[in-house]
Design a protein around this nucleic acid. Structure first.
Length: 649
RNA sequence: UGGGGUAUGGUGUAACGGUAGCACGAGUGACUCUGACUCACUUAGUCUAGGUUCAAAUCCUAGUACCCCAACCA
């Protein structure tokens, strides 16, 4: 029997409900196969509105909404840190489903623990989600939501559960609860489990009114103290927290726990597919239990029941050589191991943005790694490849010499006053994009080339500059090395060359009798010494030198992940010689987006650094430390370098 | 020790009882005004052991390995 949910490929099925992200134009390649969550969504659509799970939950607050097959997803971060690349997977997944199925996508702050949360994090998350292109207020936007906006309803539902005998106020301390938690074979205990309903109602009201101190009592769900799933051993629904909340101020001093709050948030927003990571799988019975407990005894026909979303778990992203837990990222920020959440070496969205990643590269990467329940490790170089792919097609080309070596062209013409003549040459802006055209670049008799591009005694297969060798200067001339100057220590200080005027533009002419033009094996980047800008370039290596920082070694002991820091993850080059053309890029551009929050419009500035290919070196992004008189670039990623690989052999 | 999950080339993924395919990487070559890009070819895989079946990555049984769970975190 074929699998019930096996979808027809979209290309073959014009009635498919949603055009796929990859498009359905005939010239497009095969769309990628649907991942398991898309297959679940297809099954829901095929079985609704009269069959399947959606048919079994009639009228909620909005009967039409509850019955019509639809997709409504959400990204629910807690504002207790900056978003990282792992969150980007969830954002792309949730927003992508809404987009592909013509559904809706919410950004919702799961702000149920004021002790850890800050407005700075709320602001950064809004900025990062928008930057990634997950528009929560655009065409497929469902809205910007806060869990804290539902605190009132949650409180009412909690009272309802107490009245139904499904919750009680417990006065055990956290320590005592832990001691009485039991083991897989020994049930937990609580002496307050059979407290009369009236008493629990009164105490719960007192908790809300602020009559009790932190930690003195909790509201617990009465489920099953012997469950092998510890989440069901009478989980805490509310704790007392006399703490100011970034969104609700001091209105509340009791705050709902994740398990109690999350399903209600999803339900009230009409979320259809509540997508989370694998570690919440053990929480799903509780998620479902709470919704059922609320709905029990309510009249479905009268619209008294709340909507029941489906929780679906997927495997989170794990990278080799990267730390992704917010706790550890926060520690690196606090201990100043890095310059901040947006340090270009950080795996945060803000870090990747500053490093020069384009959101499209991140999205492409997420498509590539897919969505499964398999917990796999992904090599960070896959993400770097995505950045290379994107910028190869989109980044304007320019030149920069990182470690300058002076070249003097002995036969270069001079002006009447003895200074070297200057010639403006055409530089192709982007060979991958002919529409980008050309621009002018100054050339003269004194230049800088890369120190690595000259060797006095070249090894085999080295076909750059060496005594007697001829190479091409990109878009300029062929030059031949005719001599070198050295200092007292024997270091090469100047390379003397002659140039061939007939190779202007970078091509040799055909021979006098129609012979093919002579060729050179290497093309070097260069900067005219008289015109060069001097700037700072920051080169990055991985932040950690261990594949899994902090993991147990051969002895089996867990180590501190900080011990695995790479001591040379940052190299600052202060004397880089830059194409004068880059002066115009001296500042990071900012785009702005408007969002509406509680009826008020806010303007969100989103930085987007310009990125260039420094020919033969890599992609480089202007840093926000730049000023018109001091250019600073971050290396996003190198170009592939087969010569370096060859030289290693 | 109990419960919940996951195993396909080096890596990521496809297959839904019927040809183990794709991408990345790696290797070789072609092309090239970036030792980049692009193109061609090559490489290499179903955790183990049984069983069912004409046919098993897929179904069954028993193992093995790894991940998650005993916060008033999310």
């Amino acid at each position: 029997m074929p699998h019930a949910g096996r979808p027809a490929p979209r290309l073959l099925n014009p009635d498919a409900p949603a055009p796929h992200a990859h498009g359905a134009a005939p010239s497009q390649p095969e769309p990628r196969p649907k991942h398991f969550i898309e297959q679940i969504v297809d099954e829901h659509i095929a079985s609704g509105p009269n069959g399947g799970r959606w048919g079994s939950w009639p009228a909620s607050e909005d009967a039409a909404r509850a019955h019509k097959p639809r997709v409504h997803t959400r990204f629910p971060p807690e504002p207790n840190g900056y978003l990282h690349i792992g969150h980007a997977k969830s954002i792309c997944l949730n927003h992508g489903l809404a987009r592909d199925y013509r559904g809706k996508f919410n950004l919702r702050f799961d702000d149920t623990n004021p002790a850890k949360e800050e407005q700075e994090y709320v602001d950064s998350i809004i900025r990062d989600v928008l930057w990634l292109g997950a528009d929560f207020q655009g065409e497929f936007g469902g809205g910007l939501c806060y869990a804290s906006d539902y605190f009132g309803k949650m409180y009412d539902f909690a009272e309802d559960l107490i009245r139904k005998g499904k919750a009680y106020v417990c006065e055990l301390s956290a320590d005592e609860v832990s001691k009485r938690r039991g083991t897989p074979s020994v049930p937990a205990t609580s002496p307050f489990r059979d407290r009369p309903i009236e008493e629990s109602l009164r105490l719960f009201a007192e908790m809300k009114a602020g009559k009790h101190a932190n930690g003195t009592m909790t509201l617990r769900a009465r489920i099953d103290l012997a469950s092998p799933n510890f989440n069901l051993r009478d989980p805490v629904m509310y704790r007392i927290l006399h703490e100011s909340h970034q969104h609700t101020g001091t209105t509340w001093c009791i705050y709902p726990m994740y398990d109690w709050a999350h399903g209600i948030e999803d339900s009230l927003e009409g979320i259809t597919h509540s997508i989370c990571t694998l570690e919440f799988e053990n929480h799903r019975p509780l998620y479902d239990w709470f919704i059922h407990a609320i709905n029990e005894g309510r009249d479905a026909a009268a619209g008294g029941r709340i909507h029941h979303p489906q929780q679906i778990e997927f495997a989170k992203l794990r990278f080799t050589y990267v730390v992704l837990s917010k706790r550890n990222l926060l520690r690196m920020v606090e201990e100043k191991t890095v310059s901040g959440w947006d340090d270009p070496r950080m795996p945060t969205i803000a870090g990747y943005r500053r490093r020069g990643y384009h959101p499209a590269a991140i999205r492409n990467f997420m498509e590539e790694v897919g969505v499964t329940r398999i917990e796999s490790w992904i090599d960070v170089t896959r993400l770097e490849n995505a950045a290379r792919d994107y910028w190869n097609k989109n980044a304007p080309r320019t030149m920069c010499v990182l470690r300058p070596l002076r070249v003097v062209i002995d036969n270069w013409p001079r002006n009447a006053d003895g200074t070297p003549a200057v010639e403006m040459l055409d530089f192709v802006s982007n060979p991958e994009d002919p529409a980008a055209g050309t621009r002018k670049i100054p050339f003269s008799g004194e230049l800088f080339i890369e120190r690595d591009d000259f060797m006095e005694v070249p090894p085999k297969k080295f076909f750059r500059l060496s005594p007697g060798a001829e190479v091409r200067l990109r878009w300029a001339f062929f030059i031949k090395c005719v001599g070198i100057d050295k200092d007292a220590a024997g270091n090469v200080t100047t390379v003397h060359c002659t140039y061939d005027p007939a190779t202007k533009g970078g091509d040799a002419p055909p021979g006098p009798n129609g012979e093919p033009p002579r060729k050179v094996k290497a093309t070097l980047h260069w900067i005219s010494a008289a015109h060069a800008l001097t700037g700072e370039v920051r080169l990055f290596d991985r932040l950690f030198k261990a594949e899994e920082p902090g993991s147990a070694g051969p002895t089996g002991e867990k180590r501190d992940f900080m011990e695995d820091l790479n001591p040379s993850s940052l190299e600052v080059i202060t004397n880089a010689k830059l194409d004068p053309h880059l002066q115009r890029a001296a500042q990071v551009r900012t785009m702005t987006r408007s969002i509406v929050e509680h009826g008020v419009t806010h303007t969100i500035p989103i930085p987007q650094p310009d990125v260039f290919q420094f020919e033969r070196l890599g992609y480089f992004a202007i840093d926000h430390d730049s000023a018109p008189d001091k250019l600073v670039f971050n290396r996003t990623v190198t170009l592939k370098d087969n010569w370096a690989k060859e030289a290693m052999k």
